[in-house]
Design a protein around this nucleic acid. Sequence first.
DNA 1: TTGTAGGCGTTATCAG
DNA 2: CTGATAACGCCTACAA
Lengths: 338, 338
Amino acid sequence: MDNHLPTLEDVAERAGVSTATVSRSLNAPDRVSAHTRDKVMAAVRELGYAPNFGAQALAAKRTNTFGAIIPTMENAIFARGLQAFQEELSREGITLLVASSSYSPELEEEQMRALVARGADALLLIGHDRTPECYAFLEHRQIPHVVAWTYDKTRARLSIGFDNRKAMKALADRVLDLGHRTIAMISAETAGNDRARERVEGVKDAIEASGLNPAALRLVETPYAIANGASAFEALMQGADRPTAVLCGNDVLAAGALSMARKLGIDVPGDVSITGFDDIEIAEIVTPPLTTVHVPHREMGRGAARLLVALRNGEDPGPSVELEARLEWRETLGVVCG
Amino acid sequence: MDNHLPTLEDVAERAGVSTATVSRSLNAPDRVSAHTRDKVMAAVRELGYAPNFGAQALAAKRTNTFGAIIPTMENAIFARGLQAFQEELSREGITLLVASSSYSPELEEEQMRALVARGADALLLIGHDRTPECYAFLEHRQIPHVVAWTYDKTRARLSIGFDNRKAMKALADRVLDLGHRTIAMISAETAGNDRARERVEGVKDAIEASGLNPAALRLVETPYAIANGASAFEALMQGADRPTAVLCGNDVLAAGALSMARKLGIDVPGDVSITGFDDIEIAEIVTPPLTTVHVPHREMGRGAARLLVALRNGEDPGPSVELEARLEWRETLGVVCG
DNA sequence: TTGTAGGCGTTATCAG
DNA sequence: CTGATAACGCCTACAA
């Protein structure tokens, strides 16, 4: 059996009109008389017609597909924001393609090319750090794009997010207020990750503002994983001069630290305070619930979608938008012990 | 500036050959002389040429793109499997498009159409339950597809996964062995979700096998979310005849139950045992660590990719494959109290 | 081994 | 409001 899928022409023939009219009925219904439109739609339904994407893309030079490149799909940091992004896009009839760069700059470029080759009209990017090649590619192909998960007024590129440094400083201020003086930080790797870097700077800002020496901050960098948070915490607790507070660059590392504390019989926040960042789901269900920085995931996703749609449509998206991240006070942060 | 992207023709001109030769150099290098190929490749590089996806798809009737429709991106159940799926595909030069149906049958059909319209050559589907329209569409368009996350020998459709019912029965057997007699279950909604349903049946199987009445199982169904697991657990603990064991259909619900137990001052597993299913990351970091069923996520993803590639290539993928899910013994399951 | 030319299914321009 | 018709960029017989 010759499985010939119905084409525009088949529909046109069946409806007794031209292919142009069918196309218009589908894409610009108001430019066609109601009567004709009904005839066409009926034919479409009877034939089970669906447009051929390749042909459509070829002719229209537009795919109605956006791409997003996120550092990882393996945990939930980007999930909620992405969900909101996608919901907003689907409202516009746009399909979302997602690719993961696994926190690798080289891979990011590759994924970028893949998405664009697949016809992505616009891209959602996470953070400002990426290779010059990536930016050159975006420039060269004139790909509309927006940077999310960070807001940095010093950068010209269109972005939507929050000020990671400021948010982390606010948290650290609070920690210092509580009397903590020996502070450690477990951060995601800062190379190629401006968000992680900004958070570290935020902690240093707070330390400095309180009159202490920021160089005294004990900092350990480790890749993004629960197990790594655990071993980093263990290492930190090894030394003689134990910190009374361990600030983590994100909730995943904090969850690892917390589980290690439990394993070591260290009471949180009795013996040591632990904080996270992001406020993803695990922050709530961990024991005790994690004090962290709440990030406006959904708002960010939705806003990014709107900016990108405007860009793609050649409209003025307006300036970058700064969202607020706020302290989510739960139970792992307490006054300094002893 | 007229941003004209280089086309095959531009490359051909530059290399001093025909477009056909350029195309061949790219897609079938061995059908071209080494000398010519080098010339062409040089031109490709100099011009920064990249094929136009739409045109390619239109002409070749193949996109080298597979699609996956998962019920949700909001939590990690499918993340690990999908990651493995995608890694295997990229080894074959295939790009993965992911769409989420939000556990809605209607949306699934829509996403299916979108992915196929976008040129997906083949689809990864989760579970057997879906509307007749979905299956009709797959049949009609002859879309290669494979069902994952479940194995059911009674179904003809190609699938890869584990026997949800058997796995859950094994867990429940263990619970009964431990002396539990008043058992409750918190399940994801079973309508349109064969995996959830099978898990419930598995528990009933075990109860029946132990000589008790499966109708006595106290069952509460609720959508997939931590908060729902918590409130379901609270409701269950309300009544007079408290269960001594609460089996949850997945780790997310179990995590919710666990956190509620803590809030209510109910000791786990001292007062009541709680179990999960899936063995996602949170199962390990929750307090106490969750006894659950370990699912072979990566193996499933990789296997699904291989089946699908074979199908798409017109090769014989062989029969459906059954993987093993095994009990992951941790701390939330104990002998019956009192 | 290489080139020629027709066709893939839509959109968009321009008359009517 | 509708209908021809020319792109769109690439692939692939078929011929040379």
